[in-house]
Each structure stands twice: as structure tokens, then as C-alpha cells.
């Protein structure tokens, strides 16, 4: 093999690290050093490993792999902030979220919802149906319809595979290749068949690598956020909620986000609340058709251990100003209280 061939090979290897699918990678015997720009070199076997790893990183994920990747990302997020130590609230949020997800086009994913014990205001969707939101966001909400708006937005991201596509399309080879891909590649080299455990550990590391690489600190395309907003309000309406709950959430953010340190990350990664509201106003006629939907303010208050809102028929105190004074929190209900009799489901 002459120097020219090696040069082509290294270019091809590098290209493979950056882009998927450089076909017909020549079989390189071990022990040949491949020069890299800048004077460094890697062995041919290392190059082969990286190439394979890069292919792993950029391949199209099967649904089980998508789920494993998402689980590993969720595990990483839980390393940054633990769960709120309140099983009643965790189950309540799962109940609402799972009901919403059942109205989506991916009703049978292993949907799981977690409330992070953290004062930041944010929510995250990991591929495959792992959804996290912060307690800082939850405590700023006033009704189940608002909670549904938040969760439905994240569910829409998962339905459309926005995060998964971002992982596959952008420069994620760098984040994934070294640990996740190489680990899988090693196993393949040694034993042929890839065990479930090996695949899981590779994807598990991949999730951690994504976080190290700042995955949730980077914005998705603005258009994808608007799409998730539009789909989210529809999913909420499908589930029987008033889609205007989500407008309330965006206006809460609009009132607080500019100056609050708790909104720094969500502000960096999302279009401004004002812009999102402007986009949603374009579908106001659709929202209006479902504005008689359920608010669930009483259920929400009960689940969070708040004093019941001062509800008369279908009343809905929406700002904290309209809630009665906070009373010492009672034990949160394990399941949502039934809707008040006077508030028909509409």
C-alpha cells in the first residue's frame, strides 16, 4: 500500500467519522499507521473501529434502540438532578402524561414521566418516550390543562422523533463514537454476535456522551419547537383538555423568563414565549373549537397537596393570585381526585 492509498484511506476514514456511509471500506491489515492531519496517526485497526463506531452513531435506530438510547439519556439527566421525592406527584404526572401519550401516534411506547427536583423551569423529551420536567416548572402551573400542555409538547417531540433526528443528523458521531460505538465494535470484533447487554451498555454510554456534549443545551430548529407546540395543543384537546392551558403556560413564561435565572436554559434553547404565542395564534380558530375542555384545577391542586381552588361550577383560578393562601401541604393524593360534580367533563 503506497502513501497515496493511505492518504485516501485516511480521508475516507475521517469522512466516515463525520458522515454516515462511506461504502466499501477496504480491509486494512493491522499495524499500519494512518497519518492524520496535524501529524498524529492511528492504527488501521483503530481506524476501522472508529469507522464502524461512526456508522453505529449515525445509523437509523430501530425502535428498541431508540428506547434504549432515550433511557440512557434519562439516566444521565437524573444524574444532574434527582427525582422529586414525592411518589404521589410522580404517579400523578405519569397518569396525565400516559393518558396524553395514548392519544398520540405512538401510543404503545414505554412512556415514562419524571419530575426532577430542581428549581429551573424546563422540560425534556428523550427519544422513545422518556419525558422529564422540573419541579420548578410544575409548581408554576395552575391546572391539569396547563400540565397537559407541557407534557403534550414533549410527547409531540417524541412522536416526531425530533431529538432522535437531531442526534442522527448533526455532528453526533463525535459524541457517540468513542465510547458507545467503539464498545459495540469491540464486542463485535471479539465475539461476533452482539449481546443485548453489550448493546445496552453501548447505548447507555451513548446517552451519557450526548449529555456531556451538551445535547440538551442546544436548541432544536425553531420550526420543530413550533411544530411540537401545534401538535401538543391538539394532543391535549384529543385527551379532553382545554388547549388554552398551554397558552397560559407560555404567558407565565413570558412574564417571568426574561429576568429569571431559572429560565436561562429554556430561554437559550427555545424561541421566545412571545414568538411561540404568536405562532399559536395562527391556529386560534382550532383552539377555540376545543376551549370548553377540562381544566382540572381541582385535581391538580389535590395531587400537588395544595389547598383546593375556590371553585364554583367550572371555575378556574389561573394565577397564583387567585389561589387561596397556601396552607400547610397535606399528603398528596395518590390518584387525582374525581372532578367536582359541578364541573362536567364537557
Amino acid at each position: 500500500m503506497n502513501a497515496r492509498t493511505l492518504g485516501k484511506l485516511s480521508i475516507c476514514a475521517l469522512a466516515l467519522l463525520l458522515f454516515a456511509g462511506c461504502a466499501n471500506m477496504p480491509n486494512v491489515p493491522g499495524g499500519i499507521a494512518i497519518p492524520l492531519p496535524g501529524g498524529a496517526s492511528i492504527s488501521a485497526s483503530q481506524a476501522s473501529q472508529l469507522v464502524s463506531a461512526a456508522q453505529t452513531a449515525t445509523k437509523v435506530y430501530t425502535e428498541p434502540e431508540e428506547i434504549e438510547l432515550g433511557e440512557s439519556i434519562a439516566s444521565g439527566m437524573l444524574g444532574a438532578a434527582p427525582l422529586l421525592p414525592n411518589p404521589g406527584v410522580q404517579r400523578y404526572v405519569n397518569q396525565v402524561g400516559r393518558w396524553l401519550a395514548a392519544q398520540s401516534e405512538r401510543p404503545n411506547l414505554p412512556w415514562r414521566f419524571g419530575v426532577l427536583d430542581n428549581e429551573h423551569v424546563n422540560a425534556f423529551a428523550a427519544p422513545g418516550g422518556q419525558i422529564l420536567m422540573t419541579s420548578g416548572l410544575l409548581q408554576r402551573l395552575n391546572s391539569e390543562a396547563e400540565l397537559a400542555g407541557v407534557l403534550a409538547h414533549e410527547i409531540a417531540h417524541v412522536v416526531q422523533k425530533h431529538q432522535l433526528d437531531a442526534i442522527q443528523k448533526s455532528g453526533w458521531t463525535q459524541g457517540l463514537q468513542v465510547a458507545g460505538g467503539a464498545m459495540i465494535d469491540n464486542k463485535l470484533a471479539k465475539g461476533g454476535a452482539l449481546s443485548q447487554a453489550a448493546r445496552a451498555s453501548g447505548l447507555g454510554q451513548a446517552g451519557a456522551d450526548l449529555l456531556v456534549d451538551g445535547f440538551f443545551a442546544r436548541p432544536l430548529d425553531r420550526g420543530l419547537e413550533y411544530e411540537a407546540d401545534r401538535m401538543g395543543v391538539i394532543i391535549a384537546a384529543r385527551a379532553g383538555y382545554d388547549p388554552y392551558g398551554f397558552i397560559s403556560v407560555l404567558q407565565m413564561m413570558e412574564s417571568l423568563a426574561k429576568d429569571s435565572p431559572f429560565f436561562a436554559l429554556i430561554t437559550k434553547t427555545h424561541p421566545s414565549p412571545t414568538d411561540r404565542i404568536t405562532e399559536l395564534e395562527k391556529i386560534a380558530a382550532t383552539l377555540d373549537r376545543y376551549q370548553g375542555g377540562d381544566q382540572g384545577a381541582a385535581r391538580f391542586a389535590a395531587a400537588l397537596g395544595r389547598a383546593a381552588p375556590q371553585a364554583t361550577p367550572a371555575a378556574r383560578p389561573a394565577t397564583p393570585a387567585q389561589r387561596p393562601a397556601a396552607s400547610p401541604a397535606k399528603a398528596p393524593a395518590k390518584t387525582p381526585a374525581p372532578a367536582p360534580k359541578a364541573a362536567p367533563g364537557k
Partner: peptide, 12 residues
């Protein structure tokens, strides 16, 4: 916990 830097340093 959830600042950009802290997320990058989080362990699973």
C-alpha cells in the same frame, strides 16, 4: 444541577 455545565458533568 441543570445548568448547561452541570448537565455536561452529570454522571448517569
Amino acid at each position: 444541577g441543570l445548568s448547561e455545565e452541570e448537565m455536561k458533568n452529570a454522571k448517569p
